[in-house]
Amino acid sequence: MDLYEYQAREIFQQYGIAVPEAETADTAREARHAADRLGGRVIVKAQVKTGGRGKAGGVKLATDPAAAELTARHILGMDIKGHTVRKVMLAQPVDIDAEYYASYALDRAAGRFLAIASAHGGMDIEEVAATRPEAVTRIPVDPAEGVTPTTAAAIATAAGLPPTTAPALQRLWQILTKEDALLVEVNPLVRATTGDILALDGKITLDDNARFRQTRWGDSARTHDDPLEATAAAKGLNYVRLDGEVGVIGNGAGLVMSTLDVVAGCGARPANFLDIGGGASAQVMADGLTVVLADPGVRTVLVNVFGGITACDAVADGIVKALETVRLTKPLVVRLDGNNAARGRAILDARAHPLVQQATTMDGAARRAAALATDAAAV
């Protein structure tokens, strides 16, 4: 369950983390009135459940209420990475002295949480993490011990953040544990010229298993701005759209996450996360392939299945079934291993679709999918 930024800031305020004064608006006219109440000069921010809003033009400074109305009219209805903007948030500007990054995320593999912080926050944090990994500090957090004032101070010191950020770091941990969150992120966490520490943006992902305790958000936390995610949700699929070109389908969250990493290691970007589950039927496979192929950014699709509860021949049947209803115009690389793998491979061989290729290993399949995506981009 992802929250919108304006919902995340409500939680930040509840836990004593300072945020700029702000209001939300569903129309350009409402935005004008909100800007007037906030003092005239405001930041107009698209409310969508995806990153990259600033670079996409979804975050703009408006100098007065009239400009806020015009800016909101431009932003409302925008498509940002497949997400339609239906609401904007208007916030009072802040004079910034320094920008930082801070988050807590669940590390499933290690059975603990991870504190991630950097003295180089802002829109380019992903580039910083990729090109200067040493500038991003990652510190394991024992769930039983949590983040004490001493721990928060240690995280701040290790990341090069000023000591005044430690209280916010501890409160972010309290949000993570008390609000059933899997991710709590602030980018940027800023030091204003006044010396105050404020959260200028926020992202919170709540645990779906805790929905019964998070009823205050109603259906808003479960809505999908992305039409493909909405379509997938209606079909009961565990699908998250990403920004890459290689569509990924697998059975089991761990296998899919590993596949994403392997694809990235081959020099390509995953276009999505799609877990068809441990007992997927041919229909589920067909539905999943249909959704992934509907993404215009996908240049090739990688199906990586290890047969256990899900038999590989059922997966192969699903692929064949999808090919009967979907016109395949992009290469499809399939790796089947485990239960009934030989039978599944034989089914695909018999179908002999010219755009379907098979690989025997995950690494080999990822390399082939990445190469095909690169070839498609060069055409």
Score class of each variant (00 low, 15 high):
A341E: 00
C312N: 05
V298P: 04
Q358H: 08
L255Y: 01
D337Q: 14
A232Y: 02
L289D: 00
N304I: 01
G252F: 07
L228C: 06
A359M: 08
D287P: 06
L237S: 09
A346I: 07
P227E: 05
L274Q: 00
G344L: 02
Q358S: 11
L302E: 06
T325M: 01
R345C: 10
R343G: 00
N238E: 07
L260S: 04
R345L: 14
Q358I: 11
L260Y: 09
C312S: 06
V246T: 02
Q283H: 10
V303H: 00
G318W: 02
Q358N: 08
A282D: 06
I249D: 00
A366C: 14
T223L: 15
A350G: 03
A316E: 04
D363S: 09
V246F: 01
N251Y: 00
L274R: 01
D261Q: 10
L328K: 11
C266Y: 14
H224S: 09
Q283Y: 06
N304W: 02
R343L: 02
L237K: 13
N339Q: 12
Y239L: 05
V303L: 02
V326K: 12
V292P: 07
P227D: 04
G307N: 03
G288P: 07
P227G: 11
L348R: 13
V305C: 07
V291T: 01
D363Y: 13
V248P: 03
T259N: 05
G247H: 03
G277S: 11
R222C: 07
S281N: 06
L274Y: 00
V356N: 08
D225F: 13
D317S: 13
R345H: 12
D313L: 00
D275K: 02
T223G: 08
R327P: 04
G265Q: 13
A366H: 12
G244M: 12
P354H: 09
D363V: 10
R299Q: 15
D275V: 03
V305M: 11
R269K: 13
G267A: 12
V356R: 13
Q283V: 11
D226S: 14
D295N: 09
R351C: 10
D243H: 15
A230V: 05
A234T: 14
D317F: 04
A271G: 11
G297D: 08
N340T: 13
S281G: 12
D337C: 06
E324L: 10
S281F: 12
D226M: 13
